[in-house]
Each structure stands twice: as structure tokens, then as C-alpha cells.
Design a binder for these strands. Sequence first.
DNA 1: GTAGGGTTAG
Length: 602
Amino acid sequence: MREEISDVPSKLYHLFSFAKDGEIPLSINAATLLIRCFGRAKMLEESIAVFNALDPESRNTNVVNLLLDCLFRGGNTDDGFKVLDEMLERESSFPPNESTMDIVLSAIWKRNWVGRRMSVEEICGLVVRFFENGVFLDDVWLTKLITNFCRSGKSNKAWDLLHDMMRLGGQAEAVSFNALLSGLGRERDFENMNLLMNEMKEKEIKPDVVTFGILINHLCKSYKVDEAMQWRQEEGFKLMEKMRLESGYEPNTVTYNCLIDGFCKAGEIERSYELFDQMKKCGVVPNVITLNTLLDGMCKHGRVNSGIELFAEMQGKGVKGNAITYTILITSFCSVNNIDKAMKLFNEMSENGCFPDAKVYYSLILGLCQARRTNDASCVASKAKEAGFGLDIICYNALIGGFCRKNKIDEAHNMLRDMEEAGIKPDRYTYNTLISYFSQKEQFATAHRVMKRMIDDGYLPNVVTYGALIHAYCLSGNVDEAMKIFQNMSSSTNVPPNTVIYNTLIDALCKSDKVEAGISLLGDMKDKGVRPNTITYNAIFKGLQERNWVEKAFEIMDQMTENACNPDYITMEVLTQWLSAIGETEKLRSFLEGYEVSTSTA
DNA sequence: GTAGGGTTAG
């Protein structure tokens, strides 16, 4: 075997046959060498023959492992599992060891069996039998399995795997806990994340910088959905300090990226930028994710130009943008209706070595639809298909919505057919888009038919569905019917009205000279913990202007300030016209004073 | 462990 001669395996096989004919017993070492050699040469039959020629008394776990490996590699999995089964039996002559586990898992992994030919449950059952034999997973395998189970939506099985192993005497380290923590985090299962953190403490498993990263990220992203949005980025920030002091881990690029994103998502761009400066000062190198995170935060908060400057600055420092960078910019320019710039970026990106992926195409299609350039969107959609990116449900919905808004119901129908041919089923968004269209066309019967199909498809009407109906009834002048739906939402459905619903109704009431009712709904919002926004106040101000009800307007202006709600150009237009016409410029001035910074950015 | 596109409101 050590000589460099040709066709070693077949020569060795001749030698083996010769020895066998001569009834020379095969030693375990010789058998091991032969099986390994034949195994590598994919000579399954020969491997088995050697194994069979071996005196059963001299067989050991090692040689059975080799056989097992040959069987799996040779694709003879049925026999492989039979051999394994014997090994795993109680009082087995060849008890499994770490190599056995490795061979089996490698076979399962390589053939992409997880979740396909072998279910997560089956793998769990198999691995637990190893545990019962005192053979445990190493960190790498345990982490791999936990990650994979979580990604297949079976984080409960990942949980069991980790706990079964520890219960039966195995040791796990932070990496495996991290994998499970991140899986649980993805499902927003904070309760079990906390349990797991406590277990780490009890078992004195020291959390590492990744553990802290996971926690910081989830703190930054956690917010209450039902009530006022409240991010916990401050807690994330404090946790970073705690990590530094108590564990001695220095925050790294990922730690900072998570925090920067947390503050960006909470609209605190200044703090994000401070963190960006801090990381640079501390010698933590920003990467393309840092760039994209900050850029997205800036763009989404109306600072596209600062964002572009940041991009240029980072490029100067060697951080190249990627497809995600361009997606952010394209989306941002589309959202301010600067389609030319968005198209230009799309065409430029390839020159900068960033080739558009599916999502770049999708963002452009969406942006064009939102900017009511549905035909252009359709062209880009064709280009995307040519580039090999089939449209997804979000694109189809955008195009359907775009054609509906343009009153091109035939085109919308074509898209629906296209979508069906591509094997994509309508979802909640599709149905809501169609319901919105038909009800605005006062085709309420059709809208209700669509709604019925939506329910049959398993989608209960949600706040958007009701919002579309309420809006349509308001538009058709039937505010009473709209109010009926609104009241029905609270009493008969489990769908609490949101800001959009209130805004729709308040606007309609104010426009039909029922400003008192509008103000009463504003009070209702406060009671229900639904935050009014600029649109809410604008509607009320317009209603009050009609009545020239100045005192009430002053009251509401104070409320708006208290709620830290920024006026926009419409607020300014209404109030400036009205209040200066009646000589109340002093109140206007003091109202705007509190907003100096924010109005200038607006 | 970190980054990108969606339906309803003025």
C-alpha cells in the first residue's frame, strides 16, 4: 500500500484471495488495512468479503466502523443501518464510539437526508441511542444539528437534543447554546431563550461574545406589537457595557452592527452614528453590513444625501458596497419618486462589480409600481425573468396592485393568471389588494366574494382588509357603514383598529362636517393606546379650520407637541394659512419652535 | 450572532 505502484486495490485483492485459499487467517490489522483500501477504491463487495473472512472473535468496533463507512459511502444504506443497529444494541460486542457517530452523521449530512430521507425526529431518536451508549456529540456536530433542526422549524427537537445529551451525561458548550438561542430568537420564543440563559448560568457555561451578540440583537429588535412600538435598544446598549465589564469580552463588528441597527430602526440615527464613531475609535473595523445598516437607517429617515456621503466615505476606506447596498438605495430613491436616479443606480451597479440579484430586481419592480410606473415595472419584470429570476409573490402583488390603481383590471387579471401558471398562490396581500380595488370601484358584492375566497383559502380578514372596506365606504360617502364595520371590528372580530383605520374615519368625519365625532375618535385612540400620527392631526386641523374652531385647534396643537408628533408640509400649509389669516401667528410660532430641528429635516 | 423589496389612511 505504501509503494507507488498502479492498481494497488486489485493487487491487494489478489493477495487477499491467495491468503484465503491458503487458509491463512486474516489478522485484524490486515483486515483493517484492506477494508480501508477497498473502501477508498469504492470496492464495496471486496470490503464486505474481507469483513466476512475475519474471524468473528477478532472483530472490534474499529473494523466494524470501517465496514459501516464503506456501506454508507457505497450507498448500501439498508445494510449500513442494520450493522449500526447491532452496534447500538445493549451488550453489543462492538459498542459504538465517537468515530461511529461521525461516520453515521457524515453519511446523513452528505446525502442531504436531514428532513428528506430522514426526518428530524428519526435523527434525534438515532442520536439518543448513541447517548445511551455513552457516546456524545462533539460541539461541531451538536451545533450543526441544532442549527439545522431550528432552520427546519423544529426548534423543539433541537431543544430536546441538547437536553437529552446533557441529561445522559454529555457536555455542551456555549456554541451549541448559541445555535439554539438564535433559533429560538428567530421564532421570538423569548421565554425559552430566558430559560436557556438560566441553564447556562446554572451549568456554569460561560456565554461568549456571540451569546451576547444574539441577546443584544434581540433586545434591539424586540418591541411590543400591540401597543406603542418600543424598541429596547437602550437595554442592548447596556448589555454591551455589561459584557465588557463582567465578561471581559470586547464588542466586535457584529455587536456594533446589531446596536446600530437597533437605534436606526428606532429612528435614533444620531445615536447610531455615535456608535459608528465609537466603534472606529475603539479600533473595531466597520464592514459592508455596518455600511448597509446605517445607510438603510439614514435613507428610511429622510437622509438619503447623508447616506450617499457615507457610502462614498466607506468606499474610500475600502468597504465596497454590494447588492444589498444598491437595493437600499434603489428602494430609497423610488420612495421619493426619483425613478431616474433609481434606474441609474441599477444600471451602474454592475460597473462597480455588484451584480444585481433577485432582490435588486424586485426592489426596482416594487418601487416602480409604487411610483405608478406600472408599465416600466412590467418591463423590469421581463428583464428579471430573462436574467433567470422568476417573480415572487411580493412582485406579483405589487404589479397587480399597480394595474388596479391604474384601472387596468385586465392587466391585473393577466398578472394573476401569470402568477398561477408560475405555481404561486395568492396570499393575504393579493386578496387585500383586490378587495381594496373592487370596493373602491363600489363593487362591494365582488369585494365580498373575494373576501369569501380569502377566508376559504385560510386567510382571515385582517386590519388591512377592514381598512380597505372602511376607506371605500368613506369614499362613497357612506360613513355610517364605515363606522359600522369599525364597531364590528372591536365587538365581533379579534382585529383591533390601528392608526390607519382611525385616520380614515377621522378624515371622513371631519370632511363631512362631523369634526366633533372625529375628535371623539381621537380620544378613543388615546384610550385604546393607538398612536395618532401626523395624518391624524392634519385631518383634524382641516376639520377645525372649516369651522374656524381656533381654541380646539390650539388644544390639539399642544397635544401634538406632547405626543412628539412632527408636523409635515401639510400641517404647515393648513396652520400657516389659517392662523396667519386670523392673526394668531404667535401661537403658530411657539408651536413650530419645538420642532425646529425636525421640520428642517422634513 | 448582524444588512435589502409587500396590502389599508391625508
